[in-house]
Nucleic acid binder design. Structure first.
Lengths: 201, 201
DNA sequence: CCTACCGATCGGTAGG
DNA sequence: CCTACCGATCGGTAGG
């Protein structure tokens, strides 16, 4: 990444992301991957240690992207509803910018070895916790409805932003920010406390 | 299914659903499957024609379950918001009752042969259309907000009900109906027009 | 980065 | 439903 020309290793990872996302990890052979890059199967091993290293690297990079996008938001001084909207924007942005590795991340992580598998599980929990805490904070400060279940609300938000990997197409009419804002508009109306206008019964 | 004792073929399909959902289609060998059932690899072929037949059958059964649950709702005389709630209940019910085959359905359909692949794609479009039309109808009748985009709203609903396959655990504290109603409560508040107050509870 | 090769395992079949 | 086997392909390595 320090060079403008991608290293062979980066090229291999890019091709692996695309092939793993299209065909799946086990259905992609090292020879498929090599021929994408115009080399012989055995030649890959001059650049990588093995097939699983590719999967681990792709998944790790994806999770680091989500981390960088979301956890830096923790200290940003925004009210909970606006912070949730911004989190959704960033989350969908990461998905949209990394459709291949996001797909690999969501579909192939169960094929990781136990150590890497455990890391992903832990990471997943931390993302869940991020959204739950954000929503709980919004309930405490009166921004969100007091009868909201933070766990369920977090699942709903995560559904919306994660499921995008199945249908979002970069280059289409909607940018990631449009999608996030449209979703946030619908969701926030359902989560927010009723301040003015609508009455309770 | 007519017998109380499942046929060998049904047992094979059940085991295949579980193994394919846990390990993935390509990472499950026919010998893995056979040993689950206490037989030798070659013996499976007395009951099935090949590995892909299993995948096709699992995916077809899953999509038929969704069809039966949702398309019978079309003619039920309910206002759009209540119909959407009922659709979400049924949709999540199908996911919850078939966690294994639902997971196979969402993860492994890209490994189908072109013909079966095309069928799934068409089916998927019809489910999208079902939700879009339901939401468009709700907009027309004034139940849902006029500024709603039916396509985006349908994606949001589908995200919520589909993503459940990744986190829902049967036997946990929340039944499928609880999950659906909690999601519907949050979503419908965001979709409904504001002329009428919330009217549940 | 290539050629040539390794043992292991794959889906599937023949014959009983 | 089993035993024994098939050709094909897999991930990975040795030696250059």
């Amino acid at each position: 990444m320090t060079d403008s020309v991608k290293s062979r290793r980066e090229q291999i990872l890019d091709s692996a992301s695309r092939l793993f996302s299209e065909r799946g990890y086990h259905a992609t052979s090292m020879r498929d991957l090599a021929s994408e890059l115009g080399m012989q199967g055995g030649s890959l091993y001059a650049h990588i240690s093995g097939k699983e290293e590719l999967l681990v690297e792709i998944v790790n990079r994806a999770s680091r992207q989500f981390d960088a996008a979301l956890f830096t938001l923790r200290d940003v001084p925004l009210p909970p509803d606006e912070k949730l909207r911004e989190a959704m924007r960033r989350h969908i942005q990461v998905v949209a910018d990394n459709m291949d590795s996001a797909t690999v991340f969501f579909h192939e992580w169960k094929h990781l070895s136990p150590v890497a598998y455990g890391r992903v599980t832990g990471w997943r929990d931390s993302i869940d916790a991020f959204y739950r805490e954000l929503i709980a904070e919004g309930i405490d400060t009166g921004t969100f409805r007091p009868d909201l279940d933070p766990k369920s609300a977090a699942y709903l938000v995560l559904s919306a932003v994660n499921w995008a990997y199945t249908w979002y197409r970069p280059g289409g009419p909607l940018g990631p920010r449009d999608v996030a804002d449209t979703f946030a508009d619908m969701l926030l109306r359902g989560l927010k406390a009723e301040t003015t206008g609508a009455r309770r019964e």
